[in-house]
């Protein structure tokens, strides 16, 4: 079943990439997806059934909206820090704790943090995320945990757990 889920995803990706519903194209796509499935199938997610739960897709759409908004806001912030003559930066590496359990959720949280300008995930050790931040605005762990990941964490929990 894990293999079939991967096959469906790969085949849909192929159809989107080529945008062509003729016979030969479908066959080429199916063969390519089959080979990829056989090679990489055993590394695919163990809990494949989550792909067939529609409420997760609803949360993904909400999450994407919030993520894009945060990205744009943070991007303007970094642009201001780069362009202003005095360069008001206060860089540092902070440790924040997350409550997420599964590996895939942690991966996506780390990726979201890296993609928001101003923060990069340096390393993940068990539950601790080490984050390089271009402007460390407070020294209180609770405040900066909320600032760095609070807005993403609850949605990622709903999507992946």
């Amino acid at each position: 079943m894990k293999y079939i889920t991967l096959f469906i995803i790969l085949f849909l990706l192929w159809l989107l990439l080529t945008l062509n519903l003729e016979g030969p194209n479908l066959i080429v796509g199916a063969v390519a997806a089959l080979i990829t499935m056989l090679v990489f199938g055993k590394h695919f997610l163990r809990d494949w059934y989550k792909f067939f739960q529609p409420r997760r897709y609803f949360w993904i759409i909400i999450y994407l909206g919030i993520f894009i908004w945060e990205c744009i806001k943070a991007n303007f912030d970094v642009a201001y820090r780069v362009l202003s003559p005095k360069m008001p930066i206060k860089p540092g590496i902070v440790r924040v704790k997350s409550t997420l359990k599964t590996d895939i959720a942690k991966t996506f949280l780390a990726n979201s943090i890296t993609m928001t300008p101003g923060t990069i995930t340096v390393d993940v050790v068990d539950d601790d995320f080490f984050i390089h931040w271009i402007y460390v605005s407070s020294s209180d762990p609770d405040v900066y945990t909320q600032k760095v990941m609070g807005r993403f964490e609850k949605y990622i929990k709903r999507i992946f757990e």
Partner: peptide, 27 residues
């Protein structure tokens, strides 16, 4: 994202110093 993470972790492990303006280093 993966490239940024790999580059920053690699340069930390390699021992490149943080700049003088750095206020905190928990890592």
């Amino acid at each position: 994202t993966v490239a940024a993470h790999a580059l920053i972790r690699g340069s930390y492990k390699f021992g490149i110093k943080l700049s003088d303006k750095t206020v905190v280093d928990d890592y």
